[in-house]
């Protein structure tokens, strides 16, 4: 833009008659190093608008966006631990008092429980153990979640 046009535009600028495109041209003109001496005093004004445009909202991380991720990560970790634990239990060799049949056939009739009271006692013991094992997983999860809540609080 030549200086004469810039002067004319500045007259119209202060009269509020310039278009957005013309104001953009003025901004570019005042950013250049070749500004007419009579217009140079206006450089700070256009510089001021530039500085104002550079203001941005502070970026602050919000807890609400991070919280679910933490919980998800903890829940995933707990799930992994539980799965690993159950997998380990199911694949581990069973510790038993019964003889392991390898080559010789086992006479299972020798170990058959014939007494009704004894059978009931064994059944109760098995059910109790099963129940305890079943409760263990959720109990661990609940305990871990409580700990997480305490940390978050």
């Amino acid at each position: 833009m030549n200086h004469q046009l810039a002067k004319e535009l500045m007259q119209r600028y202060f009269a509020g008659e310039t278009s957005l495109a013309e104001e953009k041209e003025l901004r570019t003109y005042f950013q250049s190093e070749n500004v007419d001496p009579t217009l140079q005093p206006y450089i700070p004004l256009f510089r001021y608008w530039e500085v104002e445009r550079a203001v941005v909202a502070p970026r602050r991380p919000t807890k609400t966006r991070r919280l679910p991720r933490i919980l998800l990560a903890i829940a995933a970790a707990l799930l992994l631990v539980l799965v690993a634990r159950f997998a380990q239990l199911s694949t581990a060799p069973a510790v038993t008092a019964f003889p392991v049949a390898e080559r010789q056939p086992v006479d299972w009739s020798r170990y058959e429980v014939t007494d009704e009271g004894e059978a009931l006692r064994i059944l109760k013991a098995v059910l109790k153990t099963t129940s305890e094992k079943m409760k263990q997983g959720p109990a661990i999860t609940l305990r871990e979640l409580r700990e997480v809540e305490e940390i978050l609080d």
Binding site: Y13, F14, A15, G16, P41, Y42, P44, L45
Partner: peptide, 23 residues
């Protein structure tokens, strides 16, 4: 809007002149 823009720019210019930022 047009009046305020015009007045705003003129007043800013006047203020600049009064403060001797602009000759």
């Amino acid at each position: 809007v047009k009046v305020y823009l015009h007045r705003g720019r003129m007043q800013l210019r006047e203020l600049l002149l009064n403060e001797k930022i602009v000759e």
